[in-house]
Simulated assay, not measured.
Amino acid sequence: MTEIFWRLVPFFIAATLSYVGVMLFRRWAEQRMLDIPNERSSHTRPTPRGGGLLIVLVTFAGLWLAVVLFDLRDLLLEISAFTVGAALIAWISWLDDLRPVANRVRFGAHAIGALLILIFVGFWRVLDVPLLPSFTLGWLGLPITFLWLAGLTNAYNFMDGIDGLAGGQAVVAGLGWFALGLIVDVPLLTLMGALIAGSSLGFLGHNWPPARIFMGDVGSAFLGFTLAAVAVFGAVEDPRLAAAGVLVVWPFVFDTTFTILRRLQRRENIFAAHRSHLYQRLVIAGWSHRSVTLLYLGWAVLSVIIALLWMSAVPGSASAASIVPLLSAALLWRTVVVTERTVGQRNAV
């Protein structure tokens, strides 16, 4: 227990620094970076944005302080590659928060960040999925890992649409990676998990419904890329951590994937702005931001618990890891359908 406490110290420090930093940043942003509501917005009053910058700064500061204090020279190249890629994505996203940046510029930054991870950290060569035998990907792992890195970077951005959702998911996922790092005894995973969870919790203190500040693209893109990169770092040590990395962000992965496939089926432009995500449909149907966020956080906690049980080889956990995520996704979709149908019937009366 003593060792776990000391490994949690970065979490508490990051949470404190992030909370205070966002408080000070909010005063500046209220005069310079207001998010004005439009027809696609889920908020109704001007709110400062860009608070995710503190998540970026606190995470980087904690990571590089650990490199110096704990002499992580054997991982210096990998951590440097991650830092450059994540910093580039955060910088372009910060510019996008200030004024619109062309999609090709944003996607180019995401691609460069993903390539840096592939070159200097590695890629998924073997996949170990619950209830299935391990299979070797070979060079096919390169495009799959690239898609994972770039895809989650964008998915996280898409899912940052209501108060507390992206920050809350990052807290749960970060704590999940902290615990996974303890299970496989990889200190870098516990450190990054603690920093992600702590910095996101400090921000969440200002973003919990009703939000006083928004994360902005600078925070959501950074978190998506970072959580995707941690899964690559982890899978280098244990192939099971690729699937575990998907589970810890499963609500965001499912919602985004399902929404994109449904829009493709309808022959809609998937790059055009929309309000088709399942969480958005619930808000449109009358759910409060707080209720939807709590629903997704409960879903995220369940997914993380399943990942931890599977990684700990608890009997029956492999079946749960295969069935429960799909079952919970089906229940969410059913909830959206029933809610929208009920609202439609009520409006028709």
Rank of each mutant, 00 (worst) to 15 (best):
residue 229 A to W: 08
residue 300 A to T: 15
residue 248 V to W: 00
residue 221 A to G: 04
residue 288 S to F: 06
residue 228 A to K: 01
residue 225 F to W: 04
residue 303 S to K: 01
residue 220 S to H: 05
residue 208 W to L: 13
residue 256 T to E: 09
residue 255 D to Y: 01
residue 276 S to N: 13
residue 234 G to A: 14
residue 222 F to W: 08
residue 201 L to K: 09
residue 251 P to H: 00
residue 206 H to G: 07
residue 273 A to S: 12
residue 278 L to R: 04
residue 286 G to S: 04
residue 233 F to H: 05
residue 250 W to D: 02
residue 261 L to H: 08
residue 243 A to H: 02
residue 254 F to G: 08
residue 302 L to G: 06
residue 206 H to Q: 06
residue 275 R to A: 15
residue 236 V to R: 12
residue 292 V to A: 07
residue 244 A to V: 02
residue 282 L to R: 11
residue 278 L to A: 15
residue 276 S to P: 12
residue 249 V to Y: 00
residue 230 V to E: 03
residue 260 I to V: 15
residue 286 G to R: 00
residue 292 V to C: 03
residue 299 W to S: 05
residue 260 I to P: 13
residue 274 H to P: 11
residue 284 I to T: 11
residue 279 Y to K: 05
residue 287 W to Q: 02
residue 201 L to H: 03
residue 249 V to H: 01
residue 276 S to L: 06
residue 235 A to N: 14
residue 225 F to M: 11
residue 291 S to V: 03
residue 284 I to W: 10
residue 262 R to S: 15
residue 269 N to I: 11
residue 230 V to M: 15
residue 303 S to T: 10
residue 243 A to N: 03
residue 219 G to L: 03
residue 207 N to L: 08
residue 304 V to S: 01
residue 229 A to H: 07
residue 220 S to N: 04
residue 303 S to R: 02
residue 283 V to T: 09
residue 223 L to T: 13
residue 298 G to V: 06
residue 282 L to Q: 07
residue 237 E to I: 03
residue 289 H to T: 02
residue 281 R to L: 13
residue 256 T to Q: 02
residue 291 S to E: 11
residue 240 R to C: 05
residue 205 G to Q: 11
residue 233 F to L: 06
residue 202 G to D: 10
residue 268 E to D: 14
residue 264 L to G: 12
residue 249 V to G: 06
residue 226 T to D: 05
residue 212 R to S: 12
residue 290 R to Q: 12
residue 219 G to H: 01
residue 256 T to L: 09
residue 280 Q to S: 04
residue 236 V to L: 06
residue 259 T to I: 07
